[in-house]
Design a protein around this nucleic acid. Structure first.
Lengths: 225, 225
DNA sequence: TTGCACACGATTGGATCCAAAATCCAGACT
DNA sequence: AGTCTGGATTTTGGATCCAATCGTGTGCAA
């Protein structure tokens, strides 16, 4: 039965490479402005340059890389204004996704949500918080299966991930209780399947984050290339 | 100076192919559900399959094609619900782009806008209306140079283009005067650089279109494959 | 010493060839 | 007669090789 040991992972090589790079970017190992050389990643992952090119296109569609003809791929660098506008877009789009999701969420989903929120409150590591916070919000949208909407939501989370990390790192856990209070109100509104309160508290949560982020312009200029 | 006649069009082949396919999809020659065979387009445009693959990835990022592993590329087919949610997204995002654009619009831009609106009012061809209407709205956003926002706006226009055409075709010019009234109010608000009215009339314009579109479910089921 | 030009290395873009998977059609069996 | 299975064809995925272009460093001249 083990005659074809590698056939288990028949997933396209381009998808695997894309997943690897996605992980590297979201985890912060690849930072905005970093260049991505096709040959290098191809060599490190045991593939030729061709699937790497495909992977870079896939990531470009997800907002994780940008591509300039004959200059190669980079992790996009956003200005403070661009990040703030992206947050404004999130304020307007994510409540839509949440409302679409509300009635489709199962009891298991709600259980999972509470568990994640508990872990957020028990945790004090920065990188772990980032992961859990992302998981919390995206979980609330799992009931929304509309691809046009969900792909944009994912894009917005992806492209601002690095700046969110930088912000969380330097703001520290001081005002973490605000996040928890907001999450709890969102969670309660979701459990009551209340679209009005869900939208209100979610939009407020994102808006407050945007405003606090606006007070930290140092997140955007100090780059060490 | 004409020693290199083809060097003028040094644009990457993948970009040329993407432009060609984009035109075919937006003009309606390629319709939702249509499959796109790599070899076929490569042959017709005098290129190998490789740049075609790149082009398909580019278009995927623009929301014009979708790609399934080992199954190839298709023009995405949206459900009525997906189109309606896309319109709700437009209601929320495009006012943001318009407000960002407002203060950057030049006198020449405004002149151009009025000219386009005049042509819309003088025109009675369906396909021409589609082009001009798209030009009108995108023109109002030219002052907004924020890539994260503008690429999403373009995506939304792209992915719903076919359904907009079908809707305009069967609804006829009967209520075209409503569109013109709305455009005039938007135009006036833009010329006054009034963000509140700009947002209000634009959101209303998109919302009314969405609701009228909702009355025509026949746009979404009757496909002839 | 500074500025420009040329050439070389590094890197991406494209073409051809080969492998693997999916689709389609025919034939046989229930 | 309908359905399932098998192979043949079509189509996509990947590797290697070649061409074009960009960045850079060095050398020469003002």
């Amino acid at each position: 039965m083990s005659s074809l040991p590698e056939t288990a992972a028949v997933e396209a090589a381009s998808a695997r490479i894309a997943a690897h790079l996605r992980e590297q970017i979201l985890s912060g190992q690849l930072r905005p402005g970093d260049r991505i050389r096709q040959e290098e990643v191809g060599e490190r992952l045991g593939a030729s340059r061709l699937p790497v090119r495909e992977a870079l296109r896939i990531l470009e569609a997800e907002g994780l890389t940008e591509h300039e003809a004959r200059k190669g791929a980079r992790v996009p660098r956003l200005s403070q204004h661009e990040v703030e506008v992206t947050y404004q877009m999130r304020e307007r789009l994510e409540p839509l996704a949440l409302v679409e999701s509300l009635d489709q969420l199962t009891a298991a989903d709600l259980h999972h949500l509470e568990e994640v929120q508990r872990r957020i409150e028990a945790n004090d590591d920065v990188d772990r918080f980032l992961e859990l916070d992302r998981e919390f919000h995206l979980l609330t949208y799992t009931g929304c299966t509309l691809d046009p909407l969900m792909s944009m939501v994912t894009r917005m989370w992806n492209s601002t991930q690095h700046y969110r990390r930088a912000f969380v790192q330097l703001s520290g856990p001081g005002r973490r209780w605000v996040v928890n209070a907001e999450h709890r109100l969102i969670l309660d509104a979701v459990e009551r399947r209340d679209p009005v309160d869900s939208e209100r508290y979610l939009a407020g949560h994102i808006r407050r984050t945007r405003i606090e982020l606006g007070k930290h312009p140092e997140v955007f200029d100090g780059w060490t290339p």
